[in-house]
Write a protein that binds this DNA or RNA. Structure first.
Length: 520
DNA sequence: TTGTGTTTTATTGCCTCC
DNA sequence: GGAGGCAATAAAACACAA
């Protein structure tokens, strides 16, 4: 890897035509690209250029990367639509455990949506706030041998799916960073000990899943009116929908009742109240999530689902691109659309008239995609609000006026990217395999969470409304939103100032080392 | 160490829109 | 016709098991 790293770093600056040899993006570069892609599926030329400059790639590479990235998404979506297509990919299903593995022991990217109910269970219940030590990115999701007795990598298929929304409870600032995290549900034991204190003796599948998940799994299964069977049905069967309120508040949720045993403070509710009672859930990674996807940590699931699942066919898609602009730009909400936010924050329209339509259309489509799923006004408001809370959208504190001026036509990316640029420069190509793995897992995990969580998507409307209502109750609309925003801004301002937090979308090597060492 | 499978990157051609 | 995007393809890089 060292060689490739050198090669890569060199070739980043060398015109591609001079070096046809394929090079890999550095983890930081990929992360930057991924993060950018999260926000902009169709970046404008300027954005590409800016990104290319910041990341140290050519615009062509950027374009190619985005193209392939979109393709990748599409393929995933197709896989989802067409159902499992594992035979060719070598994914096997352990009938006993009901878990899938690919030939490499990790869930395949394309399988993200084909989620085993058990995965859903574990994720739905535990999938929000995993104890840091237990959910360290490296160790949980990346087939790290240190995972311990969880030698069944299939367990990662559930846990890995969670990681994005899992907390890395290392950042005390992140208490309220993501109201959406709250909405997403489950409040998990703060630590593994807490789970262990529950006194469960897992067996069979539960043993495989790990102790921490067992109570939740058991509870949900109980609630579903079914008893867990170790030799349960194979994947692909259709499960009955969850009963109403299956993931409702703790008061009515046996899951919570069960999980709360022994530690009242350990609220496992899926509801917001539970989250609010559990301030330590959020972590540095939550910050990462929040910053990367901001509110998208919540919305992305829906968005990406809509983005990809509901993606119009090519022809209609193009039409959509063209027709949607006006609708989007004239947001009935009277608030800045995503596009508007972007452009307004830039202070000017970064494109000329001829390109405006096209470019804007792209954004419009992105925006439409992103918003198409959120018809809930409260949700939208929250989203808008969180847009405001996005430091890289508006916070130029870390950008000198000069630079701000320079980047004003690319305010958000410019704010985003500089944070990367440092790391991009510093992150060596070809770090330890571990770091590479981590980065990869970061990316994969994003996708796993991002694209393939049908159950969560199904659940969302319910939780969404509930959370919105809860939020309204607990915070007056404005207060709630502003609270989140100001908190975020504050936190992120600190993060930006903090050198250790300069990499918003990836774990720094330090973080990696930190998390790994924490387990050891 | 090697073979195999997967993922990622680069290239090319085609299509659609302006 | 140019530009942008999609799709197919090849090949390198990578991960893993034997």
């Amino acid at each position: 890897m060292a060689d490739s790293g050198e090669v890569h770093s060199e070739e980043n600056k060398v015109p591609l035509d001079k070096s046809k040899k394929r090079t890999l993006k550095t983890p930081a570069q990929r992360d930057a690209l991924e993060c950018f892609y999260e926000e902009h599926k169709f970046p404008t030329d300027e954005m590409k250029a800016q990104l290319a400059e910041k990341v140290g790639l050519t615009e062509k590479q950027i374009s190619s990367w985005f193209c392939h990235r979109r393709l990748k998404d599409k393929r995933r979506d197709e896989i989802h639509v067409n159902g499992r297509q594992d035979p060719s990919s070598g994914v096997i299903q352990d009938r006993a455990s009901g878990l899938r593995q690919d030939s490499c022991g990790s869930i395949k990217q394309g399988d993200h949506r084909n989620i085993d109910l058990r995965e859903v269970e574990s994720r739905g219940i535990y999938g929000r706030d995993r104890p840091a030590a237990d959910l360290t990115y490296v160790n949980r999701g990346c087939q790290d041998p240190h995972v311990g007795d969880m030698d069944d990598t299939s367990s990662e298929s559930s846990s890995s799916l969670q990681d994005r929304v899992f907390s890395h409870n290392s950042d005390p600032y992140e208490i309220q960073t993501s109201p959406y995290l709250t909405q997403r549900g489950a409040i998990m034991p703060k630590n593994q000990a807490g789970a262990r204190n529950m006194g469960y003796k897992p067996s069979g599948y539960l043993k495989v899943k790990g102790e921490i998940e067992n109570p939740a799994i058991t509870a949900v299964k109980r609630q579903l009116g079914r008893h867990y069977r170790e030799d349960g049905p194979p994947l692909g069967i259709e499960f009955e929908p969850l009963p109403p309120g299956a993931f409702m508040s703790q008061s009515t949720n046996p899951v919570n009742e069960q999980n709360n045993i022994g530690d009242p403070s350990q609220c496992h509710s899926l509801g917001i109240s539970g989250f609010l009672k559990q301030p330590n859930l959020n972590t540095k990674y939550e910050a990462h999530i929040t910053r990367m996807g901001s509110q998208d940590s919540y919305e992305e699931d829906a968005n990406c689902y809509s983005i990809h699942s509901d993606r119009p066919e090519r022809s209609s898609y193009r039409q959509l691109k063209q027709k949607s602009f006006h609708n989007t730009s004239n947001s009935p909400l009277g608030q800045n659309s995503y596009l508007d936010t972007y452009e307004d924050s830039a202070g000017k329209t970064p494109v000329n008239g001829s390109n405006l339509s096209r470019i804007s259309s792209k954004h419009a489509v992105e925006e439409m995609r992103s918003d198409s799923l959120s018809k809930d006004p409260g949700y939208y408001d929250a989203k808008i609000s969180n847009k405001k809370a996005k430091p890289w959208l508006r916070d130029n504190n870390n950008v000198a006026p000069k630079n701000a001026q320079k980047n004003e036509n690319l305010s958000r990316p410019s704010n985003l990217i500089p944070e990367f640029s440092q790391s991009l420069d510093t992150v060596e190509r070809g770090p330890s395999a571990r770091v590479t793995k981590v980065d990869k897992c970061v990316t994969e995990r994003r996708h796993k969470i991002e694209y393939h969580d049908p159950v969560r998507v199904k659940m969302r409307p319910t939780n969404e409304v509930r959370v919105a209502n809860q939020a309204k109750i607990e915070y007056p609309q404005q207060d709630y939103l502003e609270n989140a925003s100001s908190t975020k801004l504050l936190l992120l301002a600190n993060q930006i100032k903090g050198s250790s937090m300069d990499v918003p979308c990836s774990f720094s090597e330090d973080e990696t080392a930190e998390t790994s060492s924490s387990l050891e």
